Simulated assay, not measured.
Amino acid sequence: MKKRKRVKTKMIEFRNPYHIEPPGALREILSHPANETEVIELAVFQEHRYAFFYWNKWVRKNEGNNPPCLISLDWHQDLCYPCETERKWLDNLDLESDAEVSLFSWAKLNGLNDGHILSAAYLNLIGDIYVHCRQELGQNTWKDEELIDTYGNSHAIKKFKTYEALQDALLNSSETSVFFDIDLDFFSVKNGLSDGSFEFTYLQEEEIRKMLNKDNPLINWIFKRIKGFTIATEPEHCGGLLRSNKFLDLISEIYFSPELFAPKCNWKWKPKY
């Protein structure tokens, strides 16, 4: 039998491999919301897996400290473990190369956007994981889990059905730094794309404002420790592009002045640049 000829894939040559970001992503540099000595970055993108790129980018600046814990608000759990093949890919990934990590986030992380969190934990890009979600996968899936990363570190994986349970866990924890992550589909209650009904219901705006208010004990706690802020818009899981944009606009209105990505944007309670 004739052997197939192997075709060697040529790596994409980037115009500037040191300043590559995932497709369609936007990044804002902001003063720290709670102190005067730091700046942080906020990144917005459609595909939730692109958060992997930013967590890696930000943890590289962490100067050898333990990685921040992850606090994620998401309708879905997004907690699929990397399989053996994916672990091999992750072990061979050059984390110093923005070009390679950006391409990996786009082309090799799971396109269902449910593998980025534990892939990041596997490489110790994030610490312990706290997810407040609505997705019901069975009673046993709400139990705490543990992931041992490629370096032998342990990562706790904690899931919460209620905002109050998340708040109680974090306010009583010893966490000192945080990556804050919001998937805008979190603000849907009945998610028709996930259950096949294609019907959606949503949290009321007043409830969202109360939840995200900077004086809310949990948000105040997060903002004192935040090292990076990621927002996934995922419009198809929000019930449409306009609905997704409405939630993004609401976050922008709650936190920023002028609006997010406008010139001189900063936190409402901080001086403008």
Rank of each mutant, 00 (worst) to 15 (best):
E96Q: 08
S72D: 06
E96F: 05
D78G: 00
R60T: 08
K57T: 04
E96N: 15
N62I: 12
R87H: 02
P82I: 06
W58H: 02
K61C: 08
Y81T: 11
S72C: 07
V59D: 02
Y81K: 10
Y81F: 14
E84S: 13
P82E: 04
K88W: 06
D98E: 14
Y81V: 14
N62V: 04
D94C: 08
I71V: 15
P82W: 01
L73D: 06
P67M: 00
E63Q: 06
D78M: 02
W75S: 03
L70K: 03
L70C: 04
D94L: 06
W58K: 00
L93K: 03
D91T: 10
K57G: 00
P67A: 03
D74C: 01
C80S: 15
N65G: 07
R60W: 04
E84A: 12
L70M: 06
D78P: 07
K88H: 13
E63T: 02
L93I: 05
T85Q: 14
N62W: 10
I71T: 07
S97L: 12
G64C: 09
K61E: 15
L70T: 02
H76W: 11
K61F: 07
W89Y: 08
N62D: 07
C83A: 11
G64S: 13
I71N: 01
S97R: 09
L93C: 05
S97Q: 12
N65C: 10
N92Y: 07
S72Y: 01
P82C: 05
E86W: 01
E84T: 14
N92M: 07
E63P: 04
N92W: 01
D74K: 04
R60Q: 07
P82F: 03
D98G: 08
I71E: 08
C69Q: 08
